[in-house]
Computed example of a mutant assay.
Amino acid sequence: MTARLHAAEDGPADACVLVLGPSLGTDTGLFDPQVAEFARTHRVIRYDLRGHGGSEVVPGPCTMADLAGDVLALLDSWGVERFCCAGVSIGGAIGQQLALTVPDRLEKLAIIASAAQFTDPPSWVVRAAQVREQGTEVLVPSRTGTWFTARWADEEPAAADRLLAMMRATPAEGYAACCEAIGAFDVRDRLGEIAAPTLLVAGAEDPATTVDMVRLLADSIPDSRFRVVPGAAHLPNATHSQAVNAALRDHFGD
Score class of each variant (00 low, 15 high):
F118L: 14
I112A: 02
G91C: 14
S114F: 00
S89N: 11
A93M: 15
A93F: 09
A86T: 11
D104W: 01
G95A: 15
I112T: 07
R105P: 04
L109C: 06
V140I: 14
K108Q: 13
R105F: 02
L100I: 11
A113F: 03
I90D: 12
R132E: 13
L139C: 03
K108Y: 04
R127K: 09
E107L: 14
A93I: 15
E137W: 07
V126I: 07
S89L: 09
Q97E: 15
I112F: 01
I111L: 15
P121F: 06
G92H: 11
P103A: 13
R132H: 07
A116L: 04
I94F: 01
Q96A: 10
R132D: 12
Q130D: 14
K108I: 11
P141D: 11
T136Q: 01
T136V: 09
E137G: 09
E133L: 09
I112W: 01
S114D: 10
P122Y: 02
S89T: 13
P103T: 11
V138I: 15
R127Y: 03
A115T: 13
Q134P: 05
V131L: 01
E137I: 14
R105D: 02
A110P: 02
G92V: 14
G95V: 11
E133R: 12
G87S: 05
I90R: 03
I90M: 09
A93D: 11
A86E: 09
V88K: 02
L139Q: 08
G87W: 03
G95K: 10
G135L: 07
A86C: 12
R132T: 12
V131Q: 02
I111D: 01
A110T: 08
Q96C: 12
A113W: 00
L100A: 06
R127I: 13
I90F: 04
L109M: 15
A128H: 00
R143H: 09
E133Q: 13
L106E: 14
A116T: 08
E107R: 08
S114G: 10
G91Y: 11
G92C: 12
I90E: 10
V126L: 05
Q117Y: 00
A86P: 08
V131S: 00
E107V: 13
E107K: 06
A115I: 09
S142A: 15
T136L: 01
A86H: 06
V131W: 00
